[in-house]
């Protein structure tokens, strides 16, 4: 039996070290992949506790940058060949001056793609907040949420309390 998306137990910590310890302990107990945190700033060592550390945003940046570079040359060479004018003794499709345009578009497309990558990967958008989210998480506290079935809740609650969670809440949403 699998837990529903927002069903689980939330532990609230003001001590960042303890929240990291809680994540470590819960992983040992077999909850890896079911743990999520909420934090104003991830405590030292927290992000390393999650199995996937690298971000695919870099691929967006790379593809965006390369697309911009190609688009810059296509724009310049395409328009130059449309008119096919020889000016100042330079061929219509002269490369060196077009490097500037290609460079600027590399940066522009790279930045726009990075933002797109961030939005897509983090599902940022005007979405509703997680039911376990608490305004304290953008201030001074760290929330450790374990997505689990009702049967496992008491065990998770016990672990969170044993490590020093200042508040433990059960979410059934």
């Amino acid at each position: 039996m699998t837990a529903r998306k927002n069903e689980g137990v939330l532990g609230v910590f003001t001590d960042g070290h303890k929240s990291v310890e809680a994540v470590r302990k819960l992983k040992e107990e077999g909850y890896a992949g079911q743990i999520h945190i909420f934090a104003a700033v991830p405590p030292h060592g927290m992000l390393e506790e999650f199995d996937v550390y690298k971000s695919s945003v870099r691929l967006f940046t790379l593809i965006g940058g390369l697309t911009g570079c190609v688009a810059g040359f296509v724009l310049c060479i395409g328009l130059a060949l449309t008119w096919d004018l020889m000016v100042g003794g330079k061929m219509p499709a002269a490369i060196p001056p077009y490097v500037v345009i290609a460079f600027e578009l590399t940066i522009l497309f790279g930045a726009l793609a990075t933002l797109t990558g961030l939005f897509l990967n983090t599902k940022l958008g005007p979405t509703a907040l997680h039911p376990a989210y608490d305004p304290r998480f953008s201030e001074d506290s760290v929330g450790v949420f374990v997505n689990c079935t009702r049967e496992k809740m008491s065990s998770v609650e016990g672990t969170l309390r044993a490590i020093g969670a200042e508040e433990v809440r059960v979410e059934y949403a």
Binding site: P42, K54, G65, G117, L124, G125, H130
Partner: peptide
């Protein structure tokens, strides 16, 4: 704020995106 909650997933991608933005800028 685009539904920002400071989750592990959000921070992981955010930190990289910010770094790449800085590298491009």
């Amino acid at each position: 704020s685009l539904g920002w909650q400071g989750t592990d997933e959000q921070w992981r991608h955010y930190n990289r995106a910010y770094l790449f933005m800085a590298a491009l800028a």
